[in-house]
């Protein structure tokens, strides 16, 4: 069974008419969409926007929610994941929020979704051209931990002054023999701007490169948004003789047997017995429904 043969998901919850469609007022949504157009025109550039207070706390996805609210239409099918899973509390909370305020259909199945809001993962199932990924971003500035001043980092971006990013990588190799950044691994977008891909594991970085889907990034507290348009080159920073590489596991998923997905480690008992399962719960369930199984 695949997505094409499935009926389109229908809304399950009637819209709460006390709020404007998708909570934000139309002027605010327009302002955000203007920011998004600019972001798409300058891939990887952080566009300041007049972020609003949302009824969820800062740091819990307010940036992503504002972008989703700005682009959401009545016909959209929304998927929300946190850590790759649809049933984590924060994902449930955000999905409910849009089901209530916009009355849109929601889904857990990646191929069915037209908009996927995510925290910390990119789905394993390849994305297609009709999909938009919305990332929740805590700290949008990849240079922040090297240079705390916003005035200075904006100048560094403007002047393409990124040498210091490689200083950190050099130092990792000199100290550990490897580049020691495991998530929020910085990338260069379209050979110009250095960008923080949000705290996704570096495992997911290659999925950004030349993706068919539009990638939108929203940081609510820092009031910045940025984008990677479809089919844009996204390269992870590295050295010629120490190339970027992704995590590999010796294990496979205990549920679906997958050898090539990002695995969560579970500790099963007091003796520390480990088990590994797919972080992408939908991907795992799809494989099980196709008859795959772990040991």
């Amino acid at each position: 069974m695949n997505a094409a043969t499935q009926p389109r998901p229908q809304p399950q919850t009637p819209r709460d008419e006390a709020y404007n469609f998708a909570y934000l007022d139309e002027q605010t949504k327009r302002m955000i969409r203007r920011g998004l157009l600019k972001a798409v025109a300058i891939p990887g550039y952080q566009v300041p926007f007049g972020g609003r207070e949302m009824p969820l706390p800062y740091g819990w996805g307010t940036g992503g929610m504002q972008l989703t609210a700005a682009i959401l239409g009545a016909e959209d099918v929304l998927k929300v994941i946190d850590q790759g899973a649809d049933d984590t509390t924060n994902a449930v909370s955000i999905r409910r929020f849009f089901a209530r305020t916009a009355g849109v259909a929601t889904t857990e199945r990646t191929p069915e979704a037209t908009i996927i809001q995510t925290r910390h993962r990119i789905p394993e199932t390849p994305l297609h051209a009709d999909q938009i990924m919305v990332y929740q971003v805590p700290i949008p500035e990849p240079l922040r931990f090297i240079e705390p001043s916003e005035t200075e980092t904006r100048t560094m971006h403007a002047l393409n002054d990124y040498g210091v990013m490689h200083v950190k990588l050099y130092e990792d190799i000199a100290t550990f023999g490897h580049i020691a950044t495991a998530y929020a691994y910085p990338v260069t977008v379209d050979e110009r701007y250095v960008m923080d891909p949000s705290p996704i594991p570096k495992f997911d970085n290659p999925k950004l490169d030349m993706s068919s889907a539009l990638m939108l990034f929203g940081a609510g507290r820092e009031k910045r948004l940025y984008a990677v348009p479809p089919f844009t080159r996204v390269t992870s920073l590295d050295f010629e003789d120490h190339p970027f590489e992704v995590q590999k596991w010796e294990h496979s998923c205990a549920i679906c047997g997958s050898h090539d997905s990002f695995l969560d480690e579970l500790i099963l008992d007091d003796q520390g017995t480990q088990s590994f399962v797919c972080s992408d719960t939908d991907y795992c369930a799809q494989r099980v429904s196709q008859g795959r199984a772990g040991q």
């Binding site: 040498g163 210091v164 490689h166 200083v167 950190k168 050099y170 000199a174 100290t175 050295f239 010629e240």
Partner: peptide, 24 residues
């Protein structure tokens, strides 16, 4: 100097800023 990184990284910074991408 950048006091938080090694002597080698201090010396290498200008080269990296000029686009040298070979660790060796």
């Amino acid at each position: 100097l950048r006091m938080a990184v090694s002597a080698g990284a201090n010396i290498g910074e200008r080269l990296m800023a000029q686009g040298v991408r070979n660790y060796q």
